[in-house]
């Protein structure tokens, strides 16, 4: 095992981690504001991927416009889901929303199979995205770099949005105490709706990137990224946006190094390892690495 090999595995881990991070940001943001574990987040990633395919193939839009349209489509989906199912449940125990989101996830998957067919479809990005770059003994592709940068840029934008803008202040106030925020004249419904819209839009962008990186999408594709990014968010501290990025990177690195450095037979224990880590982290570090002590979790 030479240093080149380890360096390549580290880069692989970072790339995979940025994929998880991309999905985890939206997830963590929604959690941070409304305390909802939104299991349907992964399925919005799927919707984003199919929307990308539709905009590229049927409408034939240029690439940056596609990204914008996908973002807006998924914003819309998020708003509808929030308005129809989560808003009426506001005030119910936390677990209620979690179960409901499981239900919505199953609905979206089955509707996907029913309308789009279960066949995986190929998904091709412009050729220049696939160019391989070499850096010493390490190689990666342009799209990997794009994904990495997108994750970082989105994180910075979101942090600024939450810290500096009026909407962000309203969001933080809502997260802190929903009743007091309402008394202060904040429109709770609008704030939460905006949270869902942005979070879901980000999931859509993540879907676009997943499709672009792996080149294949299907209606059940959202399950794994949903689950993994959720783990990432917990590791980083649910609710913390930089935490989601950090958690994503840590999870990606841990997974790749687990597969890459241990004897191959352990590769099939990858998921057991991921969830084992999750349980350990929940027990010893209930607020994750960067999470604030918002409530008692243990």
């Amino acid at each position: 095992m030479d240093s080149g090999y380890i360096a390549q595995q580290l880069v692989n881990g970072l790339i995979l981690g940025s994929m998880y991070a991309l999905v985890a940001i939206g997830f963590s943001m929604i959690y941070g504001i409304v305390r909802l574990i939104n299991f349907a987040h992964g399925d919005i990633v799927m919707i984003g991927a199919f929307a990308t395919l539709a905009f590229i193939e049927t409408v034939g839009l240029p690439f940056p416009l596609v990204a914008l349209c996908v973002f807006l489509t998924c914003c819309g989906v998020g708003i509808v889901i929030e308005r129809v199912s989560f808003r009426p449940m506001r005030g119910a125990p936390q677990v209620t929303g979690f179960i409901a989101s499981l239900g919505i996830s199953i609905m979206l998957q089955n509707i996907g199979i029913l309308t789009l067919s279960a066949q995986p479809r190929n998904f091709s990005f412009p050729g220049y995205m696939q160019t391989i770059l070499h850096l010493g003994s390490v190689s990666f592709r342009i799209i990997d770099l794009v994904i990495f940068l997108t994750a970082i840029v989105l994180m910075v934008t979101l942090v600024l949005l939450v810290k500096k803008t009026k909407l962000g202040i309203a969001m933080r106030a809502t997260a802190e105490n929903i009743d007091v925020a309402r008394l202060m004249g904040i429109n709770i419904n609008h704030t939460i709706m905006a949270t869902f819209a942005i979070g879901s839009g980000l999931a859509g962008i993540a879907g676009l990137m997943w499709g672009g990186k792996f080149g294949q999408i299907d209606p059940l594709m959202g399950y794994v990224p949903g689950l993994k990014s959720f783990v990432a968010a917990v590791i980083g501290g649910v609710g913390s946006i930089p935490g989601a990025i950090l958690g994503g990177f840590i999870l990606g690195l841990a997974e790749v190094l687990f597969v890459g450095l241990l004897p191959p037979i352990y590769s099939s224990y990858r998921d057991a390892f991921v969830f084992g880590t999750l349980i350990v982290i929940l027990i010893i570090l209930p607020n994750g690495l960067l999470g604030k002590d918002l409530e008692d979790r243990a």
Binding site: I37, P93, Q94, V95, F98, F230, V234, D271, A272, F275, G276, L278, I279, L282, I283, P286, D296, R297, A298
Partner: peptide, 21 residues
Amino acid sequence: ISVLRLKGHYLAVATMGFIII
């Protein structure tokens, strides 16, 4: 012994991990 210290959906998540393990 290990996960019952967790509450609410944190316990849900830990037990979900348990299914996968």
